[in-house]
């Protein structure tokens, strides 16, 4: 991995946007922040600090709704997406860890991989902890792990611009024409300082680890889960914003011409009917069972063994979105208390 000096981060963005669609989180003017396309002539300063955007970048790869196949009355036709080269600019370490998690989960999914292979990931390392984040406790930040991004931005402490770390051959090729000078003096010290600062700010969240331990030891009673379940509105907010949630449901529609389109759409394990069978049997009929399932999927050791990381990357989005107060702090923070 090489490290370069980068005086103006916007120059990098404009350069990357010349040959691909580039997306960055921007204010929408109505109090919201979303991933928006940014053109090669955009000079808006990058604002990398603060909370991660309400929606992670998973929608770029695992589409919220997409066509899988169609049937014309005689034959079935596959429908793989045609993706133009794209760059996701300004990804926090937690979201990059989540992409790595989904890369493994969807390793054999042609729809996901078609989008993923067409994408350049540009990360930015946080200098401060965000309001609900605990990335340092689940080893997903604030430093971007090796191989998780094609390019990684590190802001210099001395206000003299940035370091740009190259994480892949695709990243090196993407900046080749910029001819950036190589310089890693002070970069690692700054990164270590950032990591220590964020970890210190997140120290108070160590109670979450007690909750994870209790969860995996089976020490959380069914009654506790049912009590937590009474707070679940079944709104699917958590699963929508969670960067590692991946469940989907089929949606089949018949057009006016009679052609059948079979799509998949994001689904949620918190919905009452998620496991309901045609016979009426529902293995997860109670809200408590579904809440338990969601958190086992995020923090269960069997999943960590399978994917090399917890299904939770510590972004804190579920805390922000849950109307019932049973985001990660409301659940995992609670079940670890003696």
């Amino acid at each position: 991995m090489s490290t370069h000096e980068l005086a103006e981060v916007e120059r990098l963005r404009r350069h990357l946007a010349q040959s691909r669609r580039l997306y960055e989180v921007r204010d929408d003017g109505q109090g919201g922040r979303h991933w928006q396309e940014v053109g090669p002539k955009d000079f808006t300063p990058l604002e990398p600090e603060g909370d991660p955007p309400p929606f992670s970048a998973k929608l770029f790869f695992f589409a919220e709704r997409e066509l899988l196949f169609r049937f014309d009355g005689g034959q079935f036709y596959s429908s793989l997406p045609e993706v133009r080269p794209q760059a996701i600019f300004g990804l926090h370490a937690c979201d990059l860890q989540a992409i790595a998690y989904q890369d493994r989960f969807f390793a054999q999914d042609p729809h996901y991989q078609a989008r993923r292979h067409a994408t350049l990931l540009v990360g930015v390392e946080c200098r401060e902890s965000c309001s609900n984040g605990f990335c340092s406790l689940v080893e997903s930040g604030p430093l971007v792990g090796d191989g998780l991004a094609d390019l990684v931005l590190v802001r210099r402490d001395d206000a003299r611009g940035w370091w740009l770390r190259v994480g892949s051959a695709a990243g090196a090729e993407a900046i080749r024409e910029l001819r950036l000078p190589t310089n890693l003096d002070g970069c690692q010290a700054t990164r270590e300082s950032n990591a220590a600062r964020v970890a210190l700010a997140q120290l108070h969240d160590r109670e979450l680890l007690d909750g994870v331990a209790a969860l995996n030891a089976g020490q959380v009673s069914a009654d506790t889960w049912e009590t937590l379940g009474t707070h679940c509105f079944g709104c699917s907010g958590c699963t929508q914003v969670c960067p590692t949630c991946s469940c989907f449901a089929p949606l089949e529609q018949v057009g006016a011409s009679g052609e059948v389109q079979h799509e998949r759409v994001w689904d949620s394990c918190l919905y009452e009917g998620f496991q309901a069978e045609a016979s009426g049997h529902n293995p997860s009929a109670s809200p408590g069972q579904r809440v338990q399932r969601f958190w086992l999927h995020k923090f269960g050791e069997p999943f960590r063994e399978q994917f090399g990381h917890y299904g939770c990357v510590g972004c804190g989005r579920c805390d922000r979105v849950c109307p019932g107060g049973i985001g990660v702090h409301g659940v995992i923070g609670e079940v670890g208390r003696p």
């Binding site: 999914d109 991946s246 989907f248």
Partner: peptide, 10 residues
């Protein structure tokens, strides 16, 4: 093994 609906534990 992708849609998530048929889970039994892990």
């Amino acid at each position: 093994g992708l849609c998530g609906h048929c889970y039994i534990g892990a």
